[in-house]
Design a protein around this nucleic acid. Structure first.
Length: 597
RNA sequence: GAUCUCGUAGCUCAGUUGGAUAGAGCAUCUGCCUUCUAAGCAGACGGUCAGGGGUUCGAAUCCCUUCGGGAUCACCA
């Protein structure tokens, strides 16, 4: 089905060529949505055309408008304001569009697996502390982009890389061992990630104290940091781990397992999942191998001290180390290994999307250049889905200063708030305890997810825990509420989707219905823009706009009370399709719809 | 210091490749529930689009510059 502007395009070309004998370029024909205060469905901006035709904008607009009304069957009438030609499209066009949408099984979505595989990486936490607000933004964005790409027809594989290796986890391990308490998640009743996180904090405190002591004893700050006993012990553990020391390895396995078990709970609450996990402990050696291979091909070079580098100065970047002088792997090394492993695991992968904070933009520029130089042509299509920080009123989140907003706590408090609100209103009274609980969860998560995803991913955003997150206005619950209304009406009408498709051609549309149909018809454009930009906020804006438009329709038009059967059927179909589209677009944000609220 | 990025209403954010009188929500104030769920609808108030210059029929948008916030520039991850 064609977009209205695509239909009009050739007629505009004809109008100008027949009236003025001038052939227009594609660029000179610009359409935009008609502003609300004027009458019309779409608007031709004629200023660019005045460059080709020696006419004043208004005369020109009138001439084109006249031609279109006479020759283009979908154009009903026109009006001209300055250099803007507002076109009113025939109702039959919108009714046809509506019929088309109703016949689709999933209006707006592309056929499954009609486009190449894209791998989306997100989450990728360290295994030494619990997930926080920043991880929520990461997970929600990554999951949502994956769903959006899927809806746009791509095969999608959701992955994460788990940073299970390195000094950070050894710090927690050392602190746990040094405490001598043999705490476990079972013995303390704590979530595994929380328990391990406590020991990470404990390590940091001890380390700080030791540094202070050493400095007081006359040592320089740098020496103190390098020689503090706890740091030496953690480093010793890391060496033992790399050498496969049995005791250290089993401690490492046990504590990582605690963290994974804890994370699983958090992921389940977040509503995100993964198709395949990669562990740094398994990919960093692969990275080293690939660097060795690249070295022999001349992509990398060795410096005199034995470290391995790549020269990216021709690409406008710097020289970058890829192996230390002792031959050990760095952060970038394992990323090279992971990327290549993924291309090998899924050879049809056209691109990898990395959902990682914007502070790593340089890192990914380097990584993609390296992959290209190693001969992976897919690297051109790879993309760093770079997102900004979530800032608190007092500034950045800092774990040391206790200003971290914990992911589990936040999700729980959102749910509590939705419970309070629902209990006050008593609209869920008929439901079982389980059903109520699920509804509170859906509403709380909708508020949280929508809040984090309605803003442009690349921008830093503000989160104020005191004022918390709203449930009114431009919010997730507002959209859910609109959906709940559609379902309540359909329930009362005993509506079965797809049964009463008959629309009598005599139906005369009112403005509220037209606006709703126009917006529903634009769903695929919003989806493709969202997919193209890897930007869930486009879908969020669409869902909000759609719900608002429905609410106006709902408020001003009778549906169940409508006496004319044709109009009633038409409006019920409209309600049904709107409900579907709200649910569909919100599901792309990972937001679920309750049936009642 | 260099590079990148952001600065829009009291607050949180939209604003497509330059297009009409810069839009939403929150907050404040007014109306609307005996009739499809008021987590809603209708309205009021609120702007030197950080400042200055340029490009042109036209600039929040593009270019230059100043100011202010953030990020990056490791044999850290």
């Amino acid at each position: 089905m064609n977009n209205i502007n695509q239909i009009l395009f050739p007629y505009v070309v004809q109008a100008v060529s027949q009236t003025f004998s001038v052939e227009l370029t594609e660029q000179s024909i610009q359409f935009q949505d008609t502003r609300k205060e004027f009458e019309g469905d779409t608007t031709l901006v004629v200023f660019p055309i005045t460059k080709f035709v020696k006419q004043g904008p208004e005369q020109l607009a009138n001439a084109i408008g006249e031609y279109l009304v006479q020759h283009c069957p979908v154009v009903k009438q026109y009006n001209v304001v300055k250099g803007f030609l507002n076109l009113v499209i025939e109702d039959t066009y919108w009714l046809d569009a509506f019929q088309t949408m109703l016949k689709e099984e999933h209006w707006g979505r592309e056929a499954e697996n009609s486009r190449p595989r894209i791998m989306v990486e997100y989450s990728s936490p360290n295994t030494n502390k619990p997930l926080h607000l920043g991880h929520l933004r990461n997970n929600f964005l990554g999951y949502s982009v994956a769903e959006i790409l899927k809806a746009a027809g791509h095969k999608v594989t959701k992955v994460q890389i788990i940073n299970d290796r390195g000094i950070h986890i050894c710090k927690s391990m050392y602190a746990w061992q040094a405490s001598g308490k043999n705490d476990t998640p079972e013995s303390t009743g704590l979530k595994g990630d929380k328990l391990v996180g406590q020991y990470y904090v404990a390590f940091d405190q001890q380390y700080k104290a030791e540094i202070a002591d050493l400095i007081q004893g006359g040592m320089s700050k740098e020496d103190a940091e390098n020689n503090a006993p706890s740091m030496l012990a953690a480093q010793d553990m890391l060496r033992k781990w790399e050498n496969g020391d049995e005791a250290v390895t089993s401690l490492w396995k046990m504590m990582n397992q605690w963290v994974y078990t804890g994370f699983e709970v958090t992921y389940r609450n977040m509503g995100v999942d993964f198709d395949k996990l990669y562990f740094e402990s398994e990919t960093y050696l692969k990275g080293k191998e690939e660097v060795e291979k690249g070295l022999s091909k001349g992509v990398f070079f060795k410096k005199d001290d034995g470290s391995t580098w790549i020269d990216l100065t021709n690409e406008g970047l710097d020289e970058k180390a890829v192996l230390r002088k002792d031959g050990t792997a760095m952060y970038i090394t394992q990323d090279i290994g992971t990327a290549i492993l993924r291309f090998e695991d899924f050879p049809d992968t056209a691109a990898q999307i990395y959902t990682v904070g914007n502070e790593q933009e340089y890192h990914f520029k380097v990584l993609f250049k390296i992959l290209a130089k190693l001969g992976w042509s897919q690297s051109d299509a790879c993309h760093h889905l770079s997102y900004g920080m979530v800032e608190l009123p007092e500034g950045k989140m800092k774990s040391r200063e206790g200003t971290v907003v914990d992911a589990d706590d936040l999700m729980e408090s959102m749910k509590d708030e939705s419970r309070l609100m629902a209990e006050e209103q008593g609209k869920l009274d008929g439901l079982t305890t389980e059903e109520k609980d699920l509804t509170y969860h859906k509403i709380g998560m909708a508020a949280l997810k929508y809040f984090l995803m309605r803003v442009d991913p690349k921008k830093n955003m503000m989160f104020n825990p005191q004022e918390s997150i709203d449930f009114n206005g431009n919010t997730g619950p507002f959209i859910q509420y609109g959906y709940v209304r559609t379902q309540a009406i359909l329930r009362k009408a005993n509506w079965i989707t797809g049964v009463d498709l008959v629309i009598n051609g005599e139906v005369e549309m009112v403005g509220e219905e037209r606006n709703l149909i126009k917006l529903l018809f634009a769903y695929p454009q919003f989806l493709s823009e969202s997919a193209k930009k890897y930007d869930p906020s486009v879908m969020a804006a669409f869902a909000y706009e759609l719900t608002k438009t429905f609410n106006v329709f709902y408020q001003h038009c009778n549906i169940l009370r409508e006496e004319n059967v044709d109009i009633k059927t038409f409006r019920l179909n409209l309600t049904s399709l709107t409900g579907q589209c709200i649910q569909s677009s919100m599901s792309l944000l990972g937001i679920q719809m309750p049936e009642k609220m």
